[in-house]
Amino acid sequence: MDPIVTQGLTKRYGKFLALDSLSLRVRRNESVALLGPNGAGKTTALKLLCGLLRPSAGRAWLLGFDVVEERERAVAGAGVMVETPEFYPFLTPEETLRYLGRLRGMDGGELEERMDEVLELVGLGEWRRTRVGSFSRGMKQRLALAQALLHDPPVLLLDEPSSGLDPRGTLEFREILRRVGRRKTILLASHLLGEVSHLCRRAAVLSRGRLVAFQPLSLLRKKYGSLERAYLRLTGGES
């Protein structure tokens, strides 16, 4: 089974249909972009995949485990970064990662080693003992990526990972994701078409909760002239 699979995945909030029967498969070590305007259902899809929401209909699997029936086993292999990350202000990055690492079954030398690696990777090495309460949004974003990579998961679910970062930070993030993405399956929700072009081979375009295209970026470019045009046409912004 492919690492990320959704079948008729649907989410309703009362009468509002946030996600309408999403079916897609992301192959092993493939990076797929979830594209779409605000309210298209990108974040809802990611939240359903990592068990933050329960589907109104349909099913989803991460690494072969049903995200509702076997939630703990499904998310064990996923690194998640959803919405604007918030942390416990009284803890330092080291303590935060130790806490989350233990929740993920890591301990001792393995945890300390990985913690050092990911903190250096995201550029928070010198801030490791500073309480998160004093961090800027960009620094929190870096810590959010560090925690998503901490247990070296085979699957990454990322929602606007570089939002809130300065241009240098955005480029650094892009490079980190490109490097780690070679041996991971990534589902990336983003508005930044440049970022998507850099990191992903295929894109799932959502509009008003519905999947309107799921194709290789090269095909979308060929068909519509550019990725921007494809995005606008498919999401109803350009006739």
Binding site: V75, V82, P85, E86, L103, R104
Partner: peptide
Amino acid sequence: EQGTGYLLFPNPVS
């Protein structure tokens, strides 16, 4: 309320 659940809940713990 604070949004820390986004960090805490997607972990393999009930």
